[in-house]
Design a protein around this nucleic acid. Structure first.
Length: 280
DNA sequence: TCCCAGGCAAGGC
DNA sequence: GCCTTGCATGGG
């Protein structure tokens, strides 16, 4: 796969390890859509539109090409990751099906808010809540609304988040956003190793083991984690025939098996397990 | 009506 | 430490 950056676009050729479906509908991002064949995604204060101009050839139109090169992680070689994971026979179907999946490098604050909302929730509802947050507290742009920064979202009340459909997570959001806006945690977390960052994240309201792992994976680029939700729980019992019931121990099992490829492995398995559920 | 969704906090032991 | 319970809300 090769890419070329121009002023207002990225040109992607021989894209054998990238598809819009794979990166956008694999449950790691909540502000995206498709309009007559063209996919769009908003991250932070940036928007991109992805068009397929030929098989495995895409044009990504955006005002910030450099942001999206990093966001889509085009400098990481997925052939290497796939060849390592391919040695595990049980992963075969998931790797074939999810060949276009990549792990996005997303803005930390947006990931923390989004995944606190994700707890015991379903993806369409999460999308609704995150988009309403942007529409009420983000900056209006020609292309829509940015996701608010921490200072701006610290103005939101429990009632606001309840109105956005966040349910019982509303007070957790207010508490955690207040803490993030009055400390240097958002600057400090990226400097920590996985264990220290995880321990720190677990002190945030609304952040337990699974949400912490999602933040580490999607917002901090830590790949030695394996978020275990209800779908991965099914994978563990149905496909790996595991006997543990405690999700912490299930996560430990996967990390000890897949090491620093755990995050990638988890995303392929999650995407494959939900293959009959369409988000767009 | 019941079950489910990218689980977590709080309380009891 | 581990185990149980309550929890908002919309969709199947």
């Amino acid at each position: 796969m090769e890419y070329k950056v121009e002023d207002d676009k990225i040109i992607l050729t021989n894209a054998d390890t990238f598809t819009p479906e794979g990166v956008l509908t694999s449950g790691q991002v909540f502000r995206f859509g498709r309009e007559n064949g063209t996919w769009w995604v908003i991250s932070g204060d940036n928007r991109a539109e992805i068009s397929e101009i030929a098989p495995q050839n895409y044009i990504i139109n955006t005002e910030n090409p450099n942001f999206f090169v990093k966001y889509f992680d085009f400098d990481t070689n997925y052939d290497m990751i796939l060849s390592r994971l391919k040695k595990f026979e049980v992963l075969g179907p998931a790797l074939d099906y999810g060949r276009g999946v990549r792990l996005l490098r997303q803005p930390l604050f947006e990931v923390i808010v989004s995944f606190i909302i994700s707890a015991n929730n379903n993806i369409p509802r999460i999308q609704g809540s995150v988009n309403k947050i942007a529409e009420k507290f983000g900056e209006k742009r020609p292309w829509g609304y940015s996701f608010p920064n921490v200072e701006r979202l610290a103005e939101a009340s429990v009632e606001d988040f309840t109105r956005f459909g966040c349910g019982y997570r509303a007070p957790y959001l207010v508490d955690t956003i207040s803490r993030l806006s009055t400390t240097t945690l958002l600057e400090d977390l990226p400097k920590m190793d996985t264990a220290e960052a995880r321990k720190t994240l677990l002190t945030l309201k609304g952040v337990g083991p699974k949400v912490a792992d999602c933040i580490l994976l999607f917002g901090l680029g830590k790949y030695d984690v394996f978020p275990v939700d209800t779908w991965i729980d099914k994978v563990y019992h149905e496909d790996f025939h595991g006997t543990e019931t405690c999700r912490n121990r299930i996560a430990d099992y996967f990390v000890s098996t897949f090491g620093t490829d755990s995050g990638y492995c988890q995303q392929y398995l999650f995407y494959y397990k939900r293959k009959n559920i369409t988000l767009i």
